[in-house]
């Protein structure tokens, strides 16, 4: 019984961490029509950079996130006009063309990572990563708590930004009615660029969070991507709080599955769930 409760608690925390990794993709898919298959690959790149900073300069991953997220935001600003705008504009199905583009990007990133850091798996070890922390009577791993707090802060921060600031409201306006938004003077092109950059910036936070929990190799982005896609599809693309809720659900499934079933079953459940939901309700469960 105790083990079950503990795995429930760590499942919820895992869900929060995954919410951080998924929320950016949800934003890009729902508000900028970009189907970014490189989302977790970008996150994983940041995970490797954080690992590099930790092992060479002793910089804590939490500090590294503060450095990497703005950097990735700038990278997003640079990527939009060069690669993404031409693929979104004037294309019959922007989601399909961006998915091919980002699949290419993900392959490039994966192999560049494996070239630089070898394919061997890495583990980020911080003073708190293996420390047992007792929260409300449950004992959980330290790094899991840190990653969960990062993810939760990110999701809540984005929710606040989208609903309480002028730019956030403009983003929602463009997502709902691009032509109408243009009529009232919103520069939809700039807004899409901003959404994409935000999404890439949050990929850094989510990626470092996941890299703190799991041991990771260059191919890890693929498993992360499938989990994150499941979360986004269940939550509905563009729905921030929906993403959080579905991430908590997926976290519970992963946490319980990890405790009760062998490893192979875990991915079977994950793929099977994603397949079923995509076949039955590709636009999300709550829409």
């Amino acid at each position: 019984m105790g083990m079950l409760v503990t795995s429930l608690a760590s499942g919820l925390l895992l869900g929060c961490a995954y919410a951080g990794a998924a929320v950016g993709l949800s934003l890009a898919m729902g508000m900028a029509r970009v189907f970014n298959l490189a989302h977790t690959a970008l996150g994983l790149t940041c995970g490797y950079l954080a690992y590099f900073l930790l092992t060479t300069a002793g910089i804590d991953p939490m500090v590294a996130v503060g450095l990497l997220a703005p950097l990735m935001f700038l990278a997003g600003l640079a990527l939009w006009p060069t690669l993404f705008r031409p693929t979104v504009r004037g294309v019959a199905d922007p989601a399909l063309s961006t998915s091919i583009l980002t699949l290419g990007l993900a392959i490039v990133l994966e192999n560049a990572l494996s070239k630089v850091w070898t394919p061997n798996p890495r583990i980020m070890s911080t003073p708190y990563s293996n420390q047992a922390i007792t929260l409300f009577g449950f004992t959980v791993q330290g790094s899991l708590v840190v990653a969960a707090v990062l993810g939760l802060l990110l999701v809540l921060g984005l929710h606040w930004f989208l609903n309480r600031t002028f730019i956030g409201l403009a983003i929602q306006a463009v997502a709902q009615e691009p032509d109408g938004a243009r009529l009232v003077g919103i520069r939809a092109e700039l807004v899409s660029m901003l959404v994409f950059a935000l999404s890439v910036g949050t990929a850094a936070i989510g990626g470092v969070g996941l890299a703190m929990i799991y041991s990771f190799g260059p191919a890890s982005y693929f498993d992360w991507l499938l989990t994150v896609l499941l979360i986004v599809v269940v939550g509905g693309a563009g729905a921030i709080l929906g993403t959080l809720i579905s991430a908590l659900g997926v976290g519970l499934v992963l946490g319980l599955g990890g405790a009760l079933l062998p490893q192979a079953w875990n991915s079977l459940i994950l793929f099977g769930l994603l397949l079923t939901i995509l076949l039955l309700r590709p636009y999300g469960l709550f829409k």
Binding site: T87, G104, L109, N111, A112, K115
Partner: peptide, 18 residues
């Protein structure tokens, strides 16, 4: 090396979109 070959394939995939 194999990795460079895969990177080239990835770049081709990016190119194809244009």
């Amino acid at each position: 090396g194999e990795e460079i070959a895969r990177i080239a394939y990835g770049l081709c995939l990016v190119l194809v979109v244009f």
